[in-house]
Simulated assay, not measured.
Amino acid sequence: MDEVKRRHAPYTKLKAYLNEIGWTQADLAKLLNKSRYAINQNLNGTGGDFSLSEVRLICMTLGISADEFFIEPQVSKTKQENAS
């Protein structure tokens, strides 16, 4: 079986959250004015990443934190430790 080539880590936490609140990839595609295929690639890490403006729109619309859903936890913890 071929290994999936990813450009970035998949957004598994965001995908799980969307499922929890009843949002589909089609709903996210509509919000961002993108195709479902592009959203699928963004979420699974096989295509381009979300732009900063897209991350802002997602976070504002869903009421979620960019740190929690878009930045790797070890990066956030490192930043928090360095800020102390």
Rank of each mutant, 00 (worst) to 15 (best):
V4M: 09
G47L: 09
S53L: 09
T61P: 00
Q25S: 07
I58F: 06
I39G: 00
D49L: 05
I64H: 01
L28W: 14
I58L: 04
R56E: 12
T61N: 08
E72A: 12
V4T: 11
N33A: 14
L62W: 04
R7H: 10
R36I: 04
N44K: 04
S84V: 15
S84I: 15
W23M: 04
G63E: 05
H8N: 04
S84L: 15
K34G: 02
R6H: 07
S35G: 12
I58C: 06
R7C: 10
P10N: 07
M60A: 03
N42W: 02
E54Q: 15
K15T: 01
E68H: 11
K13E: 11
N44L: 07
I21S: 12
N19V: 05
L32M: 03
F50K: 03
Y17G: 03
L43A: 02
T12H: 05
V4C: 08
L52S: 15
A26T: 08
F70M: 09
Y37H: 07
R7Y: 08
K34M: 09
T46W: 01
L14G: 00
Y11E: 03
L43Y: 03
E68G: 09
A16H: 09
D2S: 08
E54L: 06
I39H: 00
Y11H: 14
H8M: 05
I71R: 13
E81M: 14
T78I: 13
Q74C: 13
A38M: 05
I39D: 00
I21L: 12
Q25T: 04
L18I: 06
K5M: 14
T12A: 01
A9N: 08
R36P: 02
F69N: 06
L57P: 09
T78M: 15
D67P: 12
N33E: 11
Q80T: 15
I39A: 00
G47R: 04
G22A: 10
T46R: 02
G22N: 09
V55E: 07
R56K: 09
